[in-house]
Structures are given as structure tokens and as C-alpha cells.
Amino acid sequence: MAGATTFHIGIDHAHRFESKAATRETPLVKWLILGVSLTFFVVFLLMPLIAVFVEAFRKGWETYITALVEPDALSAIRLTLLAAVISVPLNLVFGVCAAWAIAKFEFRGKQFLITLIDLPFSVSPVIAGLVFVLLFGAQGWFGSWLSDKDIRIIFAVPGIVLATVFVTFPFIARELIPLMQAQGREEEEAAVVLGARGLQTFWYVTLPNIKWGLMYGVILCNARAMGEFGAVSVVSGHIRGQTNTLPLHVEILYNEYQFAAAFAAASVLAVLALVTLVIKTWVENRAAQSHKDSTRDDAS
């Protein structure tokens, strides 16, 4: 279901439509559409974003900084980073393997496989957490075996990592599969015929072609990994200083009516979201640039 997040190369089309009488609206209609859609944008997207920062600084800088350097906040930041550092590379390796197999080869059941890869997108985060409780929780399938061995997965760090891996599972594969399918396999076949080994072919031929799509997938995967709430909330057990990620830390502070501190922690996540959007826009522009360059090369 990543359909909507799929990488698309942005080129401004407005002049194409605004320059012709047949493809533009009367000024009244135009201003009406602009007014309504931008008001909607401001009320639903911009104001929540601004509210995070205003609420975070409501009690001044000192409270803000204090909220971020207290041990529980720092440990939440560490755990959030850990979950991302494990789940993003795992899903990156998976995404590349899946895209290679699906894009470069023909086999039966391919379409079904693509649908299965999409599954985690359509599963509620709460259910994503639930499945791991059913497997590894005290009453779960492996529960008694794990407690004999004194291994904790649920209400501990491994459960948080597992839930994060699950919810971010399709992100990178979903970007790479259509991209590599569109590029075909001629270039790789030429490299192999000329004597390149498999990994050389991937590294020198495939990777330069997919680097922007790859980066795009990694950024979105990382944003979700660091921001996941529902799935992680189910498996975490909310043990302060131990199994709290930053989003869960926000929830705990908020429920304790420590609003300034909750919004301070939330503002860190909001900055992360903004950085994600900046890198994403940059990647799209670079991809548009290299797309333009390559079509120019083809023409000459």
C-alpha cells in the first residue's frame, strides 16, 4: 500500500495549463480552489506542526532543555535510534534481494509475492504488536520455553525491534521493485556477458541506476522506524528508562500532564520529520536532474 508514497519526479506543470484558455479556470474559480485547498492545508497540516513547537517552548528554553537531557528522555532517544539502526539495514537487504528476484527474473506467483510484501502496510500497528505478544508473550507459543531460558522478548528491547522491523518491512522493497522492473535487465546482462561477477554487476551497474529510489526508501523507512507508536506500544510494557522509545516517552509525559516536556520530546520527532521531508525533496530534485541529464544524453 505504499502506492501513495512512491517516488515521483516533480516537475512544475503549472505553466503548461495556465498558458492556454482551454485548460484554465476563470479567476474566480481558480481563487476559490486555491483558497479552499490552502486553508485546508493550513488548518490540517501546518497548524499541528506549528503547535508542536509553540507548546514545546511555552515554558521557555530552560524547561525545554531540561526535558530533553533528563535520563529517561536520553534512554528513550537511544532506544529509538537502536530500533532504527537494526530495522533499516535488515529491511534494506531484504528490499534489494526481493527487488532483484522480482525485477530481473520471471517466476510463477510473482504478483502474489508482491501483494504479500505489501501486507504489513495494511495491518493495523496494534495487530503488528499483538502477533509478537502471541508468539513470545508469557502465554504465547514460545512463552514457557523462553522463560525457562530466561530470555525476554516481550516487554523488552527485542520485542520493540521485532515490531519495528514488521511495520517498516515493505518500505524499501516497495520503492525498488517498480523502479528495477522499469529498468529491465539489458544493462546487467551486458555486464555479465562481458565477464562481470554477480556482485560487481550489482555494485557498478544496478546500484547507480537505483540509488535515488534506494535513498528514498531508506529515509521513509527510517522515519517510520523512529516514529512507530502503536505496534511498539503493545510490546513495550512502558518501562521507563528501559523499554520506552521516544514516541512512548511522549505519551507517558502527556498522560502525566507534563505537557511542556511531552511537547519538547515531540518536537525532537517533529524536527526528525522535517529533516526527512527535506532530504526526500532533495532526493526527488536530484533524481529529476539526473533523469533530465540522461534523456538529454539519449537525444544527442
Binding site: 508514497t5 492545508f41 497540516l45 501546518l46 499541528p48 506542526l49 508542536v52 521513509l220 522515519a223 523512529m226 516514529g227 512507530e228 507508536f229 502503536g230 521516544l246 514516541p247 512512548l248 511522549v250 505519551e251 515531540a266 520527532l269 517533529a270 526528525l272 520529520a273 522535517l274 526527512t276 521531508l277 527535506v278 526526500k280 525533496t281
Partner: peptide, 13 residues
Amino acid sequence: ALVDLPFALPTAV
């Protein structure tokens, strides 16, 4: 760029 904010902003925030 900001249209994608709901994808990037953690849901709890």
C-alpha cells in the same frame, strides 16, 4: 513538500 508530513510525523506527535 509538507503534504507528506503525515507520513513523516510520528502518529503520537
